[in-house]
Amino acid sequence: MSQFAAQVDARKYEPKDKHAVIFRTFFDLKKGEVMELVNDHDPRPLHYQFLAELDGTFTWEYLEQGPEVWRVAIGKVS
């Protein structure tokens, strides 16, 4: 069984849709659950958006840091 409640492979989405899909998936998580984000570049701008909009409600852990694949575990704290 996966350690992740959900996975978003952002490489499958158009750039204009990526953040909406990621945030929708995050909001659907229950407290304590973790999602996996897979991307083809460092999602640092997304991390800044999470900090600006949801500071204190999530965890962010890089699992793989490129150069071709980036994986991040994003957990829902509250």
Rank of each mutant, 00 (worst) to 15 (best):
S2M: 04
S2G: 00
Q3R: 09
Q3A: 10
A5H: 10
V8Q: 05
D9V: 04
D9L: 03
A10G: 12
A10V: 01
R11C: 15
Y13M: 09
Y13C: 07
D17N: 15
K18N: 13
H19C: 12
A20P: 08
A20F: 15
A20K: 08
A20H: 13
I22K: 05
I22S: 05
I22M: 11
F23N: 12
F23V: 08
T25L: 10
F26A: 03
F26S: 02
F26I: 00
F27D: 06
L29W: 09
G32N: 03
G32C: 08
G32Q: 05
G32T: 00
E33R: 10
V34Q: 02
L37A: 01
V38K: 03
V38E: 06
V38Q: 06
N39C: 02
H41E: 01
P43H: 14
P43V: 13
P45F: 07
P45L: 00
P45Q: 06
P45W: 04
P45A: 07
H47R: 08
Y48W: 12
Y48Q: 01
Y48G: 11
Y48M: 03
Q49L: 13
Q49I: 04
F50G: 06
F50R: 00
L51H: 11
A52W: 11
L54N: 14
L54S: 14
G56A: 05
T57W: 06
T59Q: 09
T59G: 10
T59A: 11
W60E: 08
Y62V: 01
L63P: 07
L63C: 08
E64A: 14
G66H: 06
P67N: 11
E68M: 12
V69W: 03
W70P: 04
V72M: 04
A73H: 00
I74N: 07
I74M: 09
G75C: 09
V77M: 04
V77K: 11
